[in-house]
């Protein structure tokens, strides 16, 4: 198939909590190819968020190898990691993490402020384009507190898109949303995936996993299942099936 974008080998992550050492990841390995839509599942405490944070260069593994496009992350400085986060990765949080009292548009612009190659005109242009893509053009002047949960998550998606990342990492991005809104969000992800962006999506809801083409299941820091999804559901089709009054 297409080329390998992520490769991890024997990755472990330990946290020291007082006198105890918690082993969140106990040596996991896998590779992800460009253009895949992977869901990582598992109950809480299984290590899935820890894994995603490491994949997003927000956290460092205790041991093991993590490569993006063949580059070992371990060898990079903090500043180089920041550049990777800025240019290659879009990260979406369960709690949206938008800047309060700041308009949706300005929130979307944020990553571009840290990319000195982008001029201020281009920044605005790209932010508007990204916000259009998630269908919030008419609300781009609203602040997060004036938006619903689903709308805030769309702003967060637009923010992750604005730097044209090669992959988007989402940590329970639908966890706080109702089914209909969650499906709407998933259809956006599927649309982005079609455009070639690799998506890694952490969730604990099995129905969300049916929208992806690969599912990795973690339990107690180990991979217990890694399977390709033969029958990928279309989120927009599922959305159409939902009864209207649920919204």
């Amino acid at each position: 198939m297409s080329k390998e974008i992520i490769k991890i080998e024997d990755l472990t992550r330990e946290f020291i909590m007082g006198a105890e050492t918690v082993r969140a990841l106990r040596g996991i390995s896998f590779t992800i190819n460009e253009g895949e839509f992977v869901t990582i599942m598992g109950s809480s405490g299984s290590g899935k968020s820890t894994l995603l944070n490491i994949l997003g260069c927000l956290d460092q593994p205790t041991s093991g190898i993590y490569e993006i496009d063949g580059v070992k992350m371990k060898d990079l400085s903090k500043n180089q990691l920041a550049t990777i986060r800025n240019e290659k990765i879009g990260f979406i949080f369960q709690s949206y993490n938008l800047l309060a009292r700041t308009s949706a548009l300005e929130n979307v612009e944020l990553p571009l402020f840290y990319n000195s190659k982008v001029s201020s005109e281009e920044r605005r242009e790209r932010a508007i384009k990204a916000i259009e893509m998630v269908g919030l053009k008419d609300r781009m002047d609203h602040t997060p507190s004036q938006l619903s949960g689903g709308q805030q998550q769309r702003v967060a998606i637009a923010r992750s898109l604005v730097n044209n990342p090669v992959m988007i990492l989402a940590d329970e991005a639908t966890g706080n949303l109702d089914t209909r809104t969650a499906y709407e969000i998933m259809s956006i992800f599927q649309e982005l995936n079609k455009q070639g962006i690799t998506i890694i999506f952490v969730t604990h809801e099995p129905d969300i996993a049916t929208f992806s083409n690969r599912t990795i299941v973690l339990k107690d820091g180990n991979i217990i299942q890694d399977k390709l999804n033969q029958k990928v559901q279309s989120a927009s089709a599922e959305l159409a099936k939902l009864p209207k009054e649920e919204h």
Binding site: G56, L58, K78, N79, A82, T83, R85, N86, E87, F91, N97, L99, L110, P111, Y114, N115, R159, N163
Partner: peptide, 11 residues
């Protein structure tokens, strides 16, 4: 958050 979207420590 600023660091997560690519802000460097120095930024």
């Amino acid at each position: 958050l600023r660091m997560a979207v690519g802000g460097k420590g120095s930024d």
